[in-house]
Computed example of a mutant assay.
Amino acid sequence: MTETARLAPGDPAPDFTLPTDTGENLSLKDLRGRRVVLYAYPAAMTPGCTTQACDFRDSMASLKSAGYEVVGISPDTPAQLAKFRERDAITFPLVGDQDKSVLTAYGAYGEKQLYGKTVTGVIRSTFVIDEQGRIERALYNVKATGHVAKLRRDLGID
């Protein structure tokens, strides 16, 4: 299996400017000075991705009070992201990386195992980025269910 380059704590977080669910652009550099949880998910409105997004939505008060911004990234179009936001009342930005260049830069796109087969796709991942734009944590192959609660525990939130 071809291994995608992975990020590690201390690495600079790859910068990006991507379209959001509202049709505007969001740049990572615009979030400097704040801690960011960037999470990569395969597709809007699928069962696992919905569970994960709703877990982040339901944890926004505690994440925000601990000083974190949350951004979800997937290869979806802004229109798909807008439907997802509206359908599930998502309260944080969703960005679309249709050419998968940002996902690849984060090591969140490449070969993975899916139901026992090797496929190429989005590797469900979460990145905690510090105020200076450096990776604090890079978590790959996370589970959709229970991940947000574990992340909050690991970050000492709640």
Rank of each mutant, 00 (worst) to 15 (best):
E111H: 12
R32C: 03
L114Q: 13
D30Q: 10
R57E: 08
Y115W: 12
S59D: 11
D158C: 06
Y109M: 11
G107F: 08
F56R: 10
G10A: 06
P75T: 04
A82G: 02
K64G: 13
S27L: 03
T77C: 00
R124G: 10
A13M: 03
V142D: 06
L7P: 14
A43K: 15
F84C: 00
S59C: 01
P78W: 02
G23V: 00
P47F: 12
T17Y: 03
G72N: 07
D130L: 12
R6N: 00
A82K: 14
R34K: 15
Q52M: 04
S59I: 01
S125Y: 11
P75G: 13
A66P: 04
P78G: 10
Y39W: 00
A44F: 03
V95W: 09
D55S: 12
L114N: 10
A44G: 14
Q98W: 01
L155R: 07
A44P: 01
Q52K: 02
L103G: 11
T120M: 14
T50C: 08
G48F: 13
A13R: 02
I90M: 04
T77F: 02
R137I: 00
T126L: 08
G146M: 11
F16Y: 06
G10D: 05
M45Q: 10
T46A: 06
P19F: 01
L155Y: 09
A43L: 13
K100Y: 10
D88N: 14
R32N: 01
